[in-house]
């Protein structure tokens, strides 16, 4: 059993790496930046266009366990988000089409910071594994402090007709007990 916190990719896998500075790397990076902008600007319908219709979108739980048992640190049997394309569309519609989605009305002011982007080719020629660090700052009402949530994202991006779409996302939080009142926002 590995004592590492498992991730979907290994840095040793350089053979399939899409390195920093290449056209593809730049395109993927810009796509993630654009995604962050759409989310921060509450342009959820436009964000929806970035989502593939077979999307799986999950945020597993974390457990604070001993180093020797780090493989148990990410709990896949229970999630903070357990979504697919149609359920995410439901969430977006609730927020944008109803007048009573109070958790985001008034909306949170968020800033999605995306960094440490690493890209790998996969077995499918038009799909890429993308790992990125995320830092979300969130502020609501007249709160005098920011909520800060950090996480790593393991994504699969798929290129279709020259456009990249999100086909899979796993959001792995760094907090075992999440320091926010809800996840009525997206990551």
């Amino acid at each position: 059993m590995t004592a590492h916190t498992p991730t979907s990719q290994s840095v040793e896998n350089t053979e399939k790496r899409v390195f920093f500075g290449t056209d593809l790397y730049n395109k993927i990076t810009e796509t993630l930046y654009e995604e962050a902008m759409l989310l921060d600007e509450l342009r959820l319908e436009e964000w929806a266009e970035f989502l593939a219709t077979d999307l799986i979108y999950k945020a597993p739980l974390r457990l604070s366990v001993q180093r020797a048992e780090q493989y148990k640190s990410i709990v896949h049997s229970m999630n903070h988000f357990d979504e697919d394309y149609s359920s995410l569309m439901g969430r977006i519609a609730r927020l944008t089409q109803t007048q009573s989605a109070w958790a985001e009305d008034p909306p949170s002011r968020t800033r999605h910071f995306v960094s440490n982007i690493l890209v790998w080719e996969t077995d499918k020629p038009n799909e890429f594994a993308v790992k990125s660090n995320g830092l979300l700052t969130r502020n609501r009402f007249e709160e005098d402090r920011m909520q800060v949530i950090s996480y790593v994202r393991n994504d699969i991006l798929r290129e279709v007709d020259d456009k990249l779409k999100l086909a899979k996302r796993e959001i792995v939080f760094d907090m075992a007990v999440l320091g926010t009142q809800n996840l009525s926002i997206f990551l």
Binding site: F81, S87, R91, N182
Partner: peptide, 24 residues
């Protein structure tokens, strides 16, 4: 059950996210 409950209740639950924003 796991998926649909996660969608409605708890951290990201579409029902309870409104409750947890009220109590503070």
């Amino acid at each position: 059950i796991r998926k649909v409950t996660t969608g409605l209740l708890g951290t990201s639950g579409m029902i309870e996210q409104d409750d947890s924003d009220t109590w503070p």
